[in-house]
Design a protein around this nucleic acid. Structure first.
Length: 494
RNA sequence: GGCGCGGUACCCAAGUGGUAAGGGAGAGGUCUGCAAAACCUUUAUGCGUCGGUUCGAUUCCGACCCGCGCCUCCA
């Protein structure tokens, strides 16, 4: 079977194959670091993370580059408002973004920053000007001449051939030759932060950095370029125009776009009051793993409706996955193998792979793993599962987790970081009781828990239920659930 | 207006030209000192509405209704 992926350029699902060998060169548009990342941002970044993880699981080497947009109008404005430098301003939000990404197990790509590529961008513009593809306006800005790129619109399927110039032109843009021409380099307005460069002082236009940095890191043609669906036009269209008109070569082979999410059925917006950052959710007491699971449970090209009910459901689903693994890891089994369990493991691995190969159908991959869990649990209960069935079942679970990354329980310490951040930011009032409780379960060390659980078990065996119940209550209060099974006792953090 | 996507049970959500995955929630049951976990049974003659094609459509075609996205540097 081959990996089939939707390509925005062709508007269809195509077989994905790297241009060269077994190495995938991919570029993802990263955040503009002017504020904390919201759940919509993370839906996109998680989709890319899933893609990256699946490609690696499929045996590819990955060169994954992501930009940090650390200069744009909003950043310049906000930094000035706060009376700090652009660098100080963006450093804070870049750090926050990386912390958040790590919190939901997004693997970190190679990062490149716009402000660290000013000379390369100036050179790129110079080369465009030499070919008359770009031009300088009176104020010192540079624009891309769309008339020089007849294929403009091929990604977003827009037809600009009938466009008539000049009917209405924005006041700020009166110097442009054509209304559609876009800025490559913006001259500074009085008092604005700017960078010196061979093409004069100013700041890069947004699209330029991605063309320059992607080609620098990955070559003039590379395998895949990713981002949110809103980037199709104009951002990616403009990148293509700049890059291909300069190199004469196809820019990215595949274009990967994640669909926007809705919040409670509506577009997320600050005015509707349904705008949430990752930290907002954690402050409310939701686990990072719940969000990761929820965001992976709907295939990336479908609209995902984020709801708090859905987030709770996701949390329960993750619990089920974790409980199953705990059961596999801690149970006692008779020696030997069962052919049924062996084939169950094989079939599940195949189903999972087939689902993900089908344009990353995560919903089906999850259905496959839950089917396995139900059947294996039934085998547990009937005693049909054998000792040598455990490794293959665990291996399938491991494969699943290489992609979904929710089994490892690091929620409590991660939530604690958010708690500490909130205190440091003076946002104590936003810390909910639920968060406090969730952080609780990370307070006791494994050794402390083992000790208490041991005492509780001893009391239970002595049928001293009063003592054992007291210990159980203490543990529950500390966020630890103790489960007594016929194979012995086991515990987990709530 | 142009281009595109979607409407599947109480909720979330896959999917197929031949009769509806999975998760959550609910109900009943098994197990159990308590608790937890788990299993079993159960919950859409139905897949926005109306037509059409077909032996047969939720799946194809058409119309309509509703929701959503892009078309102004918002992932």
């Amino acid at each position: 079977m081959a990996f089939r992926l939707f390509n925005t350029m062709s508007s269809r699902v195509e077989e994905f194959r790297p241009l060269i060998g077994k190495e995938v060169r991919m570029y993802a548009c990263g955040p503009t670091v002017y504020d904390y990342g919201h759940i919509g941002n993370f839906r996109t970044f998680i989709a890319v993370d899933l893609l990256r993880r699946f490609l690696r699981q499929s045996g590819y080497k990955i060169r994954h580059v992501m930009n940090i947009t650390d200069v744009d109008d909003k950043i310049i404005r906000n930094a000035a408002r706060d009376g700090v430098s652009v660098q100080q301003y963006t450093a804070k939000y870049e750090k926050a973004f990386l912390e958040d990404a790590a919190m939901i197990d997004i693997e970190q790509p190679t990062l490149v920053r716009a402000t660290e590529h000013i000379p390369e961008m100036a050179e790129f513009v110079t080369r465009l000007v030499e070919r008359d593809i770009a031009y300088r306006t009176e104020d010192g800005s540079y624009y891309f001449r769309i008339a020089k790129f007849p294929q403009y619109g091929k990604l977003s399927k827009k037809d600009f051939s009938g466009m008539v110039d000049g009917a209405r032109v924005d006041v700020d843009e009166y110097e442009k030759d054509s209304a559609r021409d876009f800025a490559l380099w913006k001259a500074p307005k009085p008092g604005e932060a700017s960078w010196d460069s061979p093409i004069g002082p100013g700041r890069p236009g947004w699209h330029l950095e991605c063309s320059v940095m992607s080609m620098k890191e990955l070559g003039e043609s590379f395998d895949l370029h990713a981002g949110g669906e809103d980037l199709v036009f104009p951002h990616h269209e403009n990148e293509i125009a700049q890059s291909e008109s300069l190199t004469g070569k196809p820019f990215a082979h595949f274009w990967f776009h994640a669909r926007f999410l809705l919040v409670e059925g509506e577009k997320m917006s600050k005015s509707l009051g349904n705008f949430f950052t990752l930290r907002d959710l954690v402050l409310k007491g939701h686990k990072p793993s719940s969000l990761r699971y929820l965001l992976t449970s709907v295939p990336y090209r479908n609209q995902l409706n984020f709801t708090f009910d859905g987030l709770k459901q996701a949390a329960v689903s993750v619990e089920r996955l974790r409980n199953f693994r705990l059961r596999l890891a801690s149970g006692a089994f008779p020696a030997g193998t069962s052919s049924e369990m062996q084939s169950l493991a094989r079939e599940t691995a195949d189903r999972m792979r087939a689902a993900l190969e089908d344009d990353l159908n995560t919903a089906q991959a999850q259905a496959a793993i839950f089917e396995m869990i139900r059947r294996a649990n039934a085998a547990f209960d009937s005693g049909a599962i054998r000792k040598d069935d455990i490794p293959p079942l665990l291996a399938v679970l491991g494969k699943f987790d290489e992609i979904f990354a929710v089994l490892h329980d690091d929620d409590a310490p991660r939530m604690k970081q958010v708690l500490e951040w909130a205190k440091a930011e003076g946002r104590d009032k936003d810390v909910t009781e639920k968060l406090q409780e969730a952080v609780q379960s990370g307070q006791l060390s494994d050794a402390d828990i083992e000790k208490k659980v041991g005492e509780m078990e001893a009391a239970r065996r002595a049928r001293n239920f009063k003592v054992s119940d007291t210990l159980r209550t203490e543990l529950v209060t500390a966020g630890i659930v103790v489960e007594n099974t016929k194979d012995g006792v086991r515990w987990r953090r709530k």
